[in-house]
Design a protein around this nucleic acid. Structure first.
Lengths: 188, 188
DNA sequence: TAGGTCATGTAATAGGTTACATGATTGC
DNA sequence: GCAATCATGTAACCTATTACATGACCTA
């Protein structure tokens, strides 16, 4: 499970609570991975049981107490083991392509509306990646002073941007092709 | 759920058994969707209960009997409803990028090995898409005589190829960047 | 005779989402 | 007064994967 290893990865930078980890996810890897608190908390307990983390309660006044997790040597070893482990390319499910595949069942204009909607969403996202997301990553690099890792973080963003751009290109071409198509208009 | 609607989509071309549907999946949409028989069978029963399909047993000698499913008017309506329904872009989880993000924890050569492995896998897949997968799709178009839908099917293949090519480009660039990097070699 | 095709399923497990629950403090 | 932030969780549900079960026929 990548979630486990992402948690180990962040905790290897420094000890944190589940709540903190959620912020880390949202601020630095949300463009290719996300997790809910309701998934993070039980997973942390599990990692503790497995001896990959230890937990310590930080008592606070005025605020709820925090459970601060620390990575163990076994945790570090497991992280490195996983990072080196070979992997295949997991099949990417694309529900949108299911719609295109069966697009002959609806009117041309309805299909085009779908494609145009996806196009604008992907354009928004790529703008976000190139603007705010990149900015937050940059701040993250400066805050941690991890220049070396900053390069890897940047690479993951580049990957996201490339993917989005490929979608945009394809959508634009698909729209043109479908527009110039003779298709029955009456489908209800 | 896209699986349900993919099943409806195929059954709208013609009545089939679960086993047949599995072949349809493997022959025409496996590059963006896949399903196991153990998932298809219960889903078909569910669709029948919902009144979107009807079932008829085809008795056979020498072979196990087949359960042939037919789409109903309600099923067709549901398919069209779903096809027109607006959707966002589902977040794509990329476990490989998690590895890159935390790549600073392993030796440069180990990371490069991972990138090169992914590169060769994606290259293999894009070749398959441009060769055998395209061929099978072409045969499917000829067999069904559905030229109009053939265009949509082709578009989904193009999308897959674009995605793969984007990955390949990114991997090649990433490899070059990481190769020219000064990194501590000793990580165990 | 061993493995593949045809044809159906169930059960267990894993991974993720959504809803629900609690409760104090801070800012508008 | 109301929403957001901080901080933790549980429970139900959905989707998908893997393993298991059956059994006949066909091909190498």
């Amino acid at each position: 499970m990548s979630l486990k290893h992402a948690l180990l990865g962040f905790l290897n930078y420094g000890s944190m609570s589940g709540y903190d980890l959620k912020q880390c996810f949202d601020q630095s890897i949300q463009h290719f991975w996300s997790a809910n608190l309701s998934q993070i908390y039980p997973t942390l307990s599990q990692l503790e049981e497995e001896g990959l983390l230890t937990m310590e309660v930080a008592y606070q006044e005025d605020r709820p107490n925090r459970k601060v997790y620390h990575i163990t040597e076994a945790g570090r070893a497991e992280l490195r083991r996983w990072l080196r482990e070979p992997m295949e390319t997991p099949p990417q499910r694309q529900p949108f392509l299911v719609k295109v595949f069966f697009g002959g069942n609806i009117a041309k204009e309805d299909l085009l509306a779908q494609l145009r909607c996806q196009l604008s969403l992907h354009k928004e996202q790529v703008s976000a990646y190139q603007g705010p997301v990149r900015k937050v990553l940059q701040q993250y690099i400066e805050a941690t002073g991890l220049a070396q890792e900053g390069l890897f973080w940047g690479l993951t963003l580049e990957a996201g941007i490339k993917q989005k751009k490929a979608w945009i290109e394809w959508l634009e071409e698909a729209i043109v092709k479908i527009e110039s198509l003779d298709m029955p208009v009456t489908k209800d």
